[in-house]
Design a protein around this nucleic acid. Structure first.
Length: 552
DNA sequence: AATCAGAACAACCGCCAAACG
DNA sequence: CCGTTTGGCGGTTGTTCTGAT
């Protein structure tokens, strides 16, 4: 800040007040605005009072008039910010709740750094709060060597980022590239590097079937996403304006959110499902409702979450590969385990410590923790089967539940997509497009809740069965959400280095090829293979997709 | 008790787009 | 149609607080 001294309005207000409550040049670096010295730096309570009074009298807006009408020596911008972030009524102060945190992550996975939009989904919260929270979280995870998103949604997150890069998401706003980069700064090294370096390792425990399916879905949907993107590329407006991108998501979620309480009760569940992940995502020790995670999401989430001690196995390795191959029983165990999220510190510790052998890691939360090697072997085995099936892909009833779900969902949700899409929105059409890519993830997500009560062993079956049949709105929403993520491709990490959509995409292709080659080839069921194993189908479909995206 | 690192928070800056004249 | 103003958004920076060493 410009001024080092002052008080933060609340605690230090007194000093400034001694003089003119409004102008305190000494402490705050002032700026000349039209000859007047505009105060900068922390606001004093006196200033706040003036601003509040001003808004009461004149209402919000016309912030530049504040100085003239109220005598407050602050620029309009500063006034607006102060009002929006601190003085505005109905502001929710205090730490984010577990639900909010989870929602933020989910939203970020879908939207990227669209703080304002995200704030719209969090009543009483400001974009600045969310931004700060996120940035802090990023730092934390970066430090911990963890991927930006929980394994469950990691791919989704990447997709969203990719999406942004592609320009679709943000309407080609160059700024988003920056955002992406900012986000990616972490992902690339962590995820990407992990992919290559750790291809051999699988972070099996991380993803339960569901999550795996999600990931797969993403991978599968990625192609769709590209298509979507290519179509969407033409939209001149910012993404912001086209929120309908996620008609289902925004609509349902937003509405649900309005009443926060309701949101917590109802929406959360929906959202979680919709995202298909109920990831426990955040290592945040603050999580107040572990039960949440423990149950639905928890089933995967927590456990698979980055936090599970089991995951961190070999350092950064784990990129969150989906492990669909896990036995249901495993899943069940996951779901049931109410274990609290490990703190980041613990994570760090694991990372630093080597571990495959460490029994400790394996056991705790993650189901697969019994051993990475085991997991790898298991995965490799599965992988082989997966590959076989993958060729047949989603359309067929492959072994992969996720795929099944996808295919089923594709048709299933299309109508709903449209329904959710804004009639007005030019993008409504996009909804349909998305619907095509309907993701498995959605299904997985959705099911997560369902499976919640169901024994882990039944989980997969459940997914398969329910998804197609269920016309549940929630499920749909979730599906949409996933679909909505046009950006979705497997990992922004894959793309991040290449600026520009076309380049990115092409680079993606190359990267994919490389990854496939290295990773898939990597002996013994590489974690990647498993990660993409599911997605092997998706990968296969990728090339065409890329080409499409490259089209003008 | 002192120091340091990290987290959390607040505010500013620059850019962009819509609104307005 | 063009230039200016205004509002909004996202990124960055600075300060303070807190916990660990």
């Amino acid at each position: 800040m410009a001024n080092t001294n002052n008080e933060s309005e609340d605690s230090m207000q007194s000093n400034d007040n001694t003089d003119s409550p409004l102008v305190d040049e000494g402490s705050s670096g002032g700026s000349m605005g039209g000859g007047t010295v505009l105060k900068k730096g922390p606001w004093t309570s006196a200033e706040d009072a003036i601003l509040v009074d001003y808004v009461k009298k004149h209402g919000e807006g016309n912030w530049n008039a504040v100085q003239k009408l109220s005598g407050l020596f602050r620029c309009g911008k500063s006034c607006r910010l102060r009002w929006a972030n601190h003085l505005r009524p109905n502001l929710k102060k205090g730490a984010f709740t577990a639900e909010e945190e989870r929602l933020i992550i989910e939203l970020h996975a879908k939207m990227g750094n669209k703080w304002a939009r995200m704030a719209a989904h969090l009543p009483g919260r400001t974009d600045n709060e969310i931004k700060n929270y996120w940035n802090t979280r990023i730092k934390r995870r970066q430090r911990a060597g963890l991927p930006l998103y929980p394994p469950d949604i990691c791919l989704q997150a990447n997709e969203s980022h990719l999406y942004q890069n592609s320009g679709e998401f943000n309407g080609g706003d160059s700024r988003h590239n920056d955002i992406m980069q900012s986000n990616n700064y972490e992902i690339p090294d962590v995820v990407f590097d992990n992919l290559k370096a750790n291809s051999g390792l699988s972070y099996a425990p991380a993803l339960p079937d569901i999550s795996a399916s999600n990931m797969l879905t993403q991978g599968l949907s990625s192609a769709h996403n590209f298509n979507f993107i290519s179509q969407m590329v033409h939209h001149p407006k910012r993404l912001r304006e086209s929120e309908m991108f996620f008609p289902g998501f925004n609509g349902s979620v937003t509405t649900a959110l309005s009443p926060y309480d309701q949101f917590q009760n109802d929406t959360c569940g929906k959202v979680h499902r919709s995202f298909g992940l109920s990831f426990p995502y955040d290592p945040d020790p603050n999580n107040k409702s572990p039960q949440h995670f423990g149950v639905i999401q928890g089933s995967h989430a927590l456990l698979n979450g980055n936090f599970s001690t089991s995951k961190p196995i070999s350092g950064l390795v784990k990129l969150e590969l989906p492990s669909l191959q896990y036995s249901d029983s495993d899943l069940g165990s996951w779901g049931t385990s109410p274990a609290p999220l490990p703190s980041l510190d613990s994570v760090d510790t694991f990372i630093q410590s080597p571990p495959l052998n460490e029994p400790v890691q394996s056991d705790c939360l993650s189901p697969r923790n019994s051993g990475l090697l085991d997991a790898l072997l298991h995965e490799s085995e599965t992988l082989s089967s997966v590959k076989n099936h993958s060729s047949e892909k989603s359309s067929s009833s492959s072994v992969m539940p996720s795929e099944m779900v996808d295919s089923s969902n594709l048709n299933l949700h299309e109508a709903e997509w449209e329904a959710y899409s804004e009639p007005i929105s030019p993008l409504s059409r996009s909804a349909a497009i998305f619907s095509e890519c309907t993701p498995i993830s959605g299904s997985s997500l959705e099911d997560a809740p369902h499976t919640e009560t169901i024994p882990g062993s039944d989980l997969r079956a459940d997914v398969v069965e329910h998804v197609p049949n269920s016309g549940r709105v929630e499920n749909d929403i979730s599906t949409r959400l996933d679909c909505s993520r046009p950006d979705a491709l497997l990992g922004s990490s894959l793309f991040y280095r290449a600026p520009g959509c076309g380049k990115e995409q092409s680079s993606v292709t190359d990267t994919i090829a490389t990854l496939l080659g290295d990773d898939f080839c990597s002996a013994g069921g590489s974690s990647l293979s498993q990660g993409f194993g599911l997605g092997s189908c998706a990968w296969k479909s990728m090339p065409p997709v890329c080409q499409i995206s490259e089209l003008p």
